[in-house]
Design a binder for these strands. Structure first.
Lengths: 185, 185
DNA sequence: GCCTTAAAGCGAATTATTTGCGTTAGATGC
DNA sequence: GCATCTAACGCAAATAATTCGCTTTAAGGC
């Protein structure tokens, strides 16, 4: 039986909050499960049983932090909408905080769906942008193509390349996609 | 003073081998530093001092495992070479073992260069393919463009999408790149 | 309101990690 | 070669984290 409400929910909320607070106060290096437990007013064994280890817990919190809180801004045409979204995305994700969240999110159980949720968030935002284009009658690529051509390169560089990423790069990816074939497959 | 040779090198070799052996015998879930130390004939504190924690050690081993052992096969033209390389890449990397290595490699210290080395390996292999094309006088895209259009999408899906990746997908990425503009920027 | 039971609390036992200090063996200069 | 220097290792004690059996609590179904 699943018990999503009541005490379980309160514990989860308390633990997540404790992680966020301590992360801000001490940085991740100092985080330990006993410490989080104490701050959350919970016994360590509760966290061990529910999350398994610190990685899993951090992964959960990171995914929550990565959830977009607003729909993408509308600018009247597909190119502007996509550019704007990609620029904001790269700015958030390539920042030290963003990189840390992404890493943490990936750190969760490989068979879990934390990483998939991250991709899902991006896909949903892109779908909104593309739906607006369709309403206006603009030819637009599919969500998958935007993921391949815009999101994937940004993520690849964030994860595998140390250097910094600029909004220019994000804009270039969008332009490269839209120039080629406005009405993608 | 750095001491790459002698005892240090032997210890590193012994520890790495121990990790590989135990990973194969017990799986990663059962791996602990004391266990690795015992197998390597080394005291745990040696590992703690040199690597810090299990993540860092696994990351080192993973990067080593990800190093390509042979240059990309040559087939006489750019399209065939790239396709062949991408197919082999996705086959190795999207497998359960490959996915695990990639995750482990990324898990190392964010300011370390383990992740960058992975990207470096791919870039070098691609550079070889592109150099062959140049020798033949074929127009060819730059390494960065191949990373963006071929490697990044594969990696993105490996990391963020649970489903399976096929050689067809890899081939499609290569074809999409070469169709657009044979003489890329 | 009374069961049932998933989830939390508690504490002891186990295991991992840190740390100070002595020792070993590559490296360097003569 | 030989003496010297010192980074890296070994050892062991102290500390901290993790596991586990058992008890208690409270959410959800009747």
């Amino acid at each position: 039986m699943v018990r999503p409400g009541g005490r379980s929910a309160r514990v989860q909320e308390a633990v997540h909050s404790a992680v966020r607070e301590l992360q801000a106060e001490l940085g991740r290096a100092e985080l330990t499960i006993p410490l989080v437990a104490a701050r959350a007013g919970v016994t360590p064994s509760t966290i061990y049983r529910r999350w398994g280890d610190l990685q899993e817990l951090l992964s959960d919190v990171a995914v929550e932090n990565l959830r977009p809180d607003t729909p993408p801004r509308a600018h009247g045409n597909l190119a502007a909408d996509l550019r704007s979204w990609a620029e904001q995305f790269i700015e958030e994700m390539a920042s030290p905080v963003g990189r840390a969240y992404i890493r943490d999110a990936l750190l969760g159980a490989p068979d879990g769906d934390n990483a998939a949720r991250c991709s899902q968030y991006a896909a949903e935002q892109i779908a909104v942008v593309l739906a607006r284009a369709a309403e206006r009658g603009e030819g637009a690529p599919g969500v998958e193509l935007v993921l391949d051509r815009v999101v994937a390169p940004m993520m690849y560089r964030i994860l595998f390349r140390p250097g910094d990423l600029t909004a220019d790069y994000a804009r270039g990816l969008v332009d490269g996609l839209l120039d080629g074939s406005a009405a993608g497959r």
